[in-house]
Simulated assay, not measured.
Amino acid sequence: MVFQYSIKDIKVFVDGREIEGLIEIGISPKGDQDAVKPIKDWSGKTIGYSIKDDTDCEGSITIQASSKNVPQLIQLAASKKQVQIVIAAENRDALNFSKITADDCIFFYPEFKPSAEEANAEFRFIGTNFRIE
């Protein structure tokens, strides 16, 4: 499932705090292929599939290096505290969802990238309970 949207049409919250200076966010289910396993009979013939409800996800949030949220996200990466991420639709007419959530997200230390306009920081994360409403 692919959603295309403009950053101005959403708000992103990490651990209840709105992210400022947002440049880009990406989130997707993880291990979709691992959620489906063939069931084989005694001869090795596939007779069905085992499907588990896998709600794990992974993603990244890229923000301006000057954003006041950089210290917050670095602290989350250092502590490995599990937090919730919410992507809320601001312009529901332009989007196919009202919100996307992921629970128990753990952040990793950022990669800082220079750019022509302003340096930015990309924070990668993993989480579970990925939901689209």
Rank of each mutant, 00 (worst) to 15 (best):
M1C: 15
F3V: 10
F3Q: 12
I7T: 08
I7R: 06
F13W: 02
F13Q: 08
D15V: 13
R17C: 03
I19E: 00
I19A: 06
I19V: 06
E20K: 12
L22H: 08
I25H: 06
I25L: 04
I25S: 01
G31M: 09
D32W: 12
V36C: 05
V36T: 07
V36N: 08
V36F: 08
K37C: 13
S43C: 11
G44P: 03
K45Y: 12
K45F: 06
K45A: 09
T46P: 03
T46H: 14
T46L: 07
I47P: 13
G48K: 09
I51A: 04
D54H: 11
D56W: 01
D56M: 02
D56F: 01
D56E: 15
D56L: 07
G59F: 00
S60K: 06
Q64D: 07
S66W: 10
S67D: 08
N69G: 04
V70R: 09
P71M: 13
Q72G: 13
I74P: 00
Q75F: 14
L76Y: 09
L76K: 04
L76I: 11
A77G: 07
A77N: 03
A78F: 08
S79A: 12
K81L: 04
Q82H: 15
Q82A: 11
Q82K: 11
V83F: 02
V83R: 01
V86G: 00
V86D: 14
I87V: 05
A88P: 11
A88Y: 00
A89N: 06
A89G: 06
A89D: 09
N91H: 09
D93L: 14
D93S: 08
A94R: 10
L95W: 05
F97L: 13
F97Q: 09
S98W: 11
I100L: 05
A102H: 01
D104S: 13
D104C: 06
I106K: 04
I106Y: 02
F108M: 11
Y109F: 13
E111W: 10
F112Y: 15
K113C: 13
S115N: 05
S115T: 10
S115W: 04
A116R: 14
N120P: 10
A121Y: 01
E122P: 05
R124I: 06
F125A: 01
F125S: 01
N129L: 09
R131N: 11
R131E: 13
